[in-house]
Structure formats: C-alpha cells, structure tokens
Design a protein around this nucleic acid. Structure first.
Lengths: 168, 168
DNA sequence: ACCGTCATGTAATCGGTTACATGATTCT
DNA sequence: AGAATCATGTAACCGATTACATGACGGT
C-alpha cells in the first residue's frame, strides 16, 4: 500500500479505467490503441504490470474471474480517483521534448531531403487518420478532452508536413 | 565486442564525439545540454554508462588519464563511424509521438484553460531561447543540421503557443 | 582556510521492452 | 478439423533514472 512513483503511464491506466468504469488489460490495450496511443504509446505488457502495481498501491481493485480465462478486471478506488484528480489539477512542470528520430538524424548531418521524403509520407498518413477520427468525435461534448488533443495533433502534423515539404 | 542495440541515446553520444573529435563524459554533458538536449534530453549518468557500453562494443576507444582526476576520454573508432553513417543513411521507420504531459492531462479531462496558462509560459520562454540560439548559428554553414533542427523546434513552439493561447 | 559550486563518477533500483507461451475463437 | 488470428499473461533483461559520494577549483 505504498505510494509508488506515478508515471505518465500510470495516469493513462488510471484515467482509462476511470473513464470506462472497469477494464481488463486487454480492454485497456484496445482503448489505448484507439486513442491516447497516438500521443503516448504504451507497450501491451505494461498494461498488465502497471495495473497490478497500481492495485498494490491501493489505487485500483483487482477482481479475478473464476472460470475460463481467469481474466483480471480492474476498477478505480476512491484513493485512485483522488490521485487522478490531483494530477489533473496540478501544474505541469516537466517540459516536453520533440524526440523525433528523423529530426535527430538531421541534427547529426543526415541528408535532409532523404529524411524528409520518408517523414512526409508518415506524417501525411497520420494527418489523414487524425482528421477522420476527429470528424467522428468532434461533436460529442463528452469527448472534449480527446477532441482537443486530436486538434493539437492535427496542427502539429500539418506543421511537420510544411516543414519536411520544404526540404524534399 | 558484441553489437549491442543502439538506441537514440547511443547515436547522440556517437554523433557528439564524432563531431568533437574526442570528449569526456563531462564534455558530452555540456555539449548535449547546449544543443540536442532540448530536442532529446539525456540524463548525465547515461553520459558515463553509454560511452562505456559503446567502447565495449568497439565503437569508441577509451583513454584514461593517469594523474589527477583520471578522466576518461573517448574517440570514435572506424567501426563507430561506420555505425553512425549507416544510421544517418537508414530510413526512419519509428514514428514520433507528441508525448506532452500537459496535453495528456487535457486528454483526461483537465481544465484546458488552466493547463494552457502554464504551458503558454513555458513555450513562450522556449521560443525566445530558440530564436536567440538560431540567430547565432543560422549563418554558419557547418551547423546546417542543428540549424534545421532548431527551425523545426521554433515552428512547433509557435504552433503550441497558438494552440494554448486559444484555450486560456 | 573555508565554503560553495563545478566536475566526475558508481551503485542500486525500477520502469519499459522484448521474448516467450498458451488458451480461446473464428473462418475456411 | 485445422489454420490463423485474437486474447491473455509471465519472465527476463536492459536501459534509464535516482541517489549517493567524493575530488578539484574559485572566490571571500
């Protein structure tokens, strides 16, 4: 029942389960892949270990089904919900980094035009995907957060496309 | 002398030492902090362990000074240089993620206006810093890579500022 | 001389990734 | 019935972060 270090991944798990009410690791995998996954990817194995960790810390409850697959289903406890709220309300200190492998290569002298060609394709595809998702959730008031996030994603994808296009 | 997995951090170390000719971990710390550090931060301890790893793999040579601080100085071997070139020329598959903690909070329902206020400040400061650095290196032909990287950084900072400003 | 900061490094821990493994379904 | 894919989970390893520790140097 220690208070462990809560990482972004912890909050992704916590936030997802809070939103859904309850979830198995596999549910998490699906939900994450379809949403935050683009913004912040999470390995599937972590969707097994992290909930276990959070359950150990009393932020989630774990219920294991008896028959069949003996799946574990998690829900958020009161403490968990409080931890999540606290995080949501806390100021964001850590600052963000671009961490783009392609850009890193350019930094170290890779031929800009050839990196750009690859990157353009990737970003154009991402953009199309985001725009499609966006149009399907934009009107849903309850998905304001995800919609805003997507909007940020779309804008940055457009910026990347402009940037790389100048270099090809 | 195994070929270990080379991570982005490996290439940062390799690239920096290649550029400088030779460097101690502390030199690396300085150089990284002043340049790629903004794009891709590296813990100082890694600037000790990673060169050691790379030396073990034959990509760097390690020379330890005898007197005084017994500092270790690293240089890139022929194999190291080849590994770097290969990386620079290889297509970039892995795709990039935004990974912005502030945006993550918005995704999970944090009050956009309050996150935005914090973020605006951070990004405005970053932008100013980047622009200053940019103007000091833009004309240097030998720093084309870093200059392009900075340009990308500047554009994205501007996009962030526009984005968060609409939300405050 | 002393104190604070810069410089330099190692050890321990832990989160994250990779690899492995197997039980259910679905489709042909 | 068999193959392929989906679902579910554990174990081992390794890179990355945190914490600890000490030596040198510049200023007062």
């Amino acid at each position: 029942m220690q208070e462990p270090n809560l990482t972004p991944v912890s909050y992704i798990v916590l936030g997802m389960i809070a939103w859904a009410g309850k979830a198995t690791p596999y549910d998490l995998k699906q939900m994450v892949a379809a949403s935050v996954g683009n913004l912040w990817s999470v390995q599937h194995a972590q969707l097994y270990t992290e909930p276990a960790r959070l359950a150990g810390a009393g932020l989630l409850t774990e219920k294991r089904e008896e028959g069949g697959r003996r799946r574990k289903t998690y829900s958020v406890t009161a403490r968990g919900r409080r931890a999540l709220e606290r995080w949501l309300a806390s100021p964001t200190a850590e600052d963000y980094e671009l961490r783009d492998p392609g850009l890193l290569k350019v930094f170290f002298g890779a031929e800009p035009a050839s990196v750009a060609a690859d990157q353009l394709e990737v970003h154009e595809q991402k953009l199309a995907q985001y725009e499609e998702t966006y149009s399907s959730i934009a009107s849903d008031e309850s998905l304001r957060g995800p919609a805003l996030t997507l909007e940020a994603g779309i804008r940055h994808e457009r910026e990347w496309i402009r940037f790389w296009r100048e270099l090809v």
